[in-house]
Design a binder for these strands. Structure first.
Lengths: 332, 332
DNA sequence: CTGAAAGCGCTAACAC
DNA sequence: GTGTTAGCGCTTTCAG
């Protein structure tokens, strides 16, 4: 069923039907009612595709996830982020297209997704410094916002937390308790957030007058198991750490678990601080002290920034930084 | 840039350009080359919206997730399922629209998503028996496949595992070891999968000649914490269980954890079997014996069934059941 | 305030 | 084999 069936039924022109459907103000009430009634009776829904063809708007935004998205999904961070983006889209009456296309697979498909006119704009979950998809994306000129800052593309909009500052705060907290040998169980340095958190760790140590000991820094892939392995390795040191800053919560939980296996206690023997404040952090034993990031807000703000970028034109790149807080529980 | 710029450049008609773009067989090689070259030079990408308007195909499929989708996302089952669906879409050159629209929010938006012509078909992650969105969806007549069987809608296509049989197998395994008091830590009975697994548990007990003891059946929301709480409750019974069948892995992991807290050992004191075989199951302590479901295949098969439903016409509803296996590790 | 007409970018008969 | 011609279902000038 199409617009002009409604027009016939209501005995008006197609243009008029279009006007009432789009809430055009100056339509006489009784004729507007006639149209509305016809719509009601027939259950007519306008064809979004036809509309898009003329308006050049699809009301659809893309969410592009990094190459390693499959592992990514297992990370509770994304388990919260994605639904919040989806919800933000619904709230703002937009559709969400999820894509994990990478340059590897189907170059042509990637192009058609991005440049086929299907998307009003895209959110890119950046993570790696050298993500090969970013240069293309930025060149394409589609409205774009990065989820996570990226040092190489200052011209792009992004929303992020201040990873460096947050990590630094966590480590300073440990140092202020008199911890002398604070280890870092880190994310891959190839991730921007990984590098930022590592730098925050280092900055805090230096500010506290503590030495940076490479043996206390263990780079991991960010998983629970990697946390266990890292702690196990740290425990074999001649001088094991008396505190651990884990760059995310799964890591911290793994560290805690390994500590328990070794018959050690947190925070008595080793204090541990995590990063994320995922829901289960509060239920760990002991409950995890961790950096809370407002993942939900991150999702909403990102969508909203993109929508502004799509219709308002920013003259300068927008960089929004959301606040984090250190949540003190029992583990440190 | 549009199709007829290419036509002018290559000095052919728009129809011809369209033909080479759509791999129409009978185009003379040299003229095809001329077109291709023009495309190459200009970086032209066809407008998907315009194409859709005439073909009535958008190459986009929808993934509708249940009302409680936010918790859903935290479940590792979905953390694997969603990426696999996304990947299947990419492999089949389709776009994926993710939606968590429910009847509550924005009835009109929901309608426009489904009936606006944006989607060639939808996958619905059913879970609840009484999900209010299903009746509407089925009435809409959009090609549809349910992810998980639903007893009230036999006319719908679905793909699923045999939850009843799989649960029954797990419990029989416990019974065959001589376990006498096998507890069930279950999913909500309002979920189809929850009810099916519970029924499988009961069937296995009856077949093993074991009584059904309501005190040994604890219904939960399926989370890790709920698993802990359930085990704790079971331990307070006059006659605690000597085995537990947990209806998913987070639950089983919680059970294991609580056992450890109570100073008990699996499988010596209490055997435990989970369901899902999520990646971390193998790393639990002790490694978890659990029902493996082929989540990845589930995602792929679902997409493929939908694509068949979209263009092939099935005369009868298709019900695909994927095999599960009991993975024996150390916990039982 | 409303209608007529053009056209968004593409595909698909239908001729030649 | 290739070009011509209609639309797909909507919005949007432009008249009136």
């Amino acid at each position: 069923m199409s617009l002009d069936e409604i027009a016939k039924r209501a005995n008006v022109s197609r243009a008029t039907v279009s006007r009432v459907l789009n809430n055009y103000p100056h339509v006489r009430p009784h004729i507007r009612d006639r149209v509305l009634q016809a719509v009601q009776e027939t259950g007519y829904i306008p064809n979004a595709v036809a509309r898009s063809l003329v308006t050049k708007r699809t009301n659809m935004i893309g969410l592009l996830l990094p190459q390693d998205a499959r592992e990514t999904f297992a990370d509770p961070f994304f388990a919260i982020l994605i639904p919040s983006i989806a919800e933000a889209c619904t709230v703002h009456q937009r559709y969400l297209m999820l894509s994990m296309v990478t340059l590897n697979q189907e170059e042509g498909f990637y192009q058609s997704v991005l440049r086929g006119g299907h998307l009003d704009g895209v959110i890119v979950g950046v993570s790696m410094f050298d993500d090969p998809i970013l240069p293309q994306l930025i060149q394409d000129g589609l409205p774009l916002v990065l989820l996570g800052r990226h040092p190489y593309y200052p011209q792009a909009h992004w929303v992020n937390i201040d990873n460096l500052q947050a990590a630094s705060q966590a480590v300073s907290y440990l140092a202020a308790q008199g911890r002398q040998r604070i280890a870092l169980v880190s994310l891959p340095a190839s991730l921007v957030a990984g590098a930022d958190r590592r730098d925050g760790y280092k900055r805090a140590l230096l500010q506290a007058g503590l030495p940076i000991d490479q043996r206390l820094i263990i780079e991991t892939n960010g998983s629970y198991q990697a946390g266990q392995a890292a702690m196990s390795q740290l425990l074999q040191l001649d001088q094991p750490p008396d505190a651990v800053f884990a760059a995310n919560d799964p890591l911290a939980l793994g560290v805690l678990h390994e500590l328990q296996n070794a018959g050690l206690r947190a925070p008595d023997d080793v204090a541990v601080v995590g990063f994320d404040d995922q829901p289960s952090a509060a239920y760990a034993s002991p409950p995890l002290t961790t950096v809370h990031q407002p993942i939900n807000d991150l999702g909403f703000k990102t969508v909203e920034l993109l929508l502004e970028a799509i219709d308002g034109q920013f003259s300068a790149p927008q960089h929004r930084i959301l606040p984090t807080t250190l949540v003190r529980r029992a583990s440190a």
